[in-house]
Amino acid sequence: MIGIELDANVRGIPWKFKPLQSKVQMHPGELVEVMYEIRNDSDHEVTGQAFPSYSPRILNQYLKKIDCFCFTQQTLKPGEVRQMPVSIQ
């Protein structure tokens, strides 16, 4: 089993960004979906893109992102809240 602590932070744009669960337990190769929530706190439309990272780096050997909102830019309207999945294996 691998224990994963989920985290999120934002730099340079007026978004609030957080995982909806703080930890996940999984076996390597098991498909797991986790949800993140993003909120645009500004009064204008904002486009940004998440940058995925693992810590410690050794996790790259065991985890593979199958689907992630981080693969493309996201545009949120003023005050918009969106929940988006990440599928890892």
Rank of each mutant, 00 (worst) to 15 (best):
I4E: 04
A8V: 09
N9A: 00
N9R: 13
V10H: 04
V10D: 07
V10C: 07
V10A: 01
G12H: 02
G12C: 10
G12L: 11
I13T: 00
P14E: 07
P14W: 12
W15Y: 13
W15N: 08
K18L: 15
K18P: 15
K18T: 07
P19F: 02
P19V: 06
K23F: 15
K23Q: 14
Q25G: 10
M26C: 02
M26D: 04
M26R: 07
M26Y: 02
H27F: 14
E33D: 12
E33W: 06
M35L: 06
I38C: 05
R39G: 05
D41M: 14
S42C: 12
D43T: 02
D43N: 04
Q49G: 15
A50D: 00
A50Y: 01
F51I: 06
S53Y: 02
S53G: 12
P56E: 00
R57K: 01
L59K: 09
Q61V: 11
K64A: 10
K64L: 12
K65L: 12
D67A: 13
T72E: 05
T72N: 08
Q73A: 13
Q74V: 02
T75E: 05
P78K: 14
P78N: 11
G79F: 09
V81Q: 10
P85Y: 02
P85H: 01
S87K: 06
I88P: 03
Q89L: 14
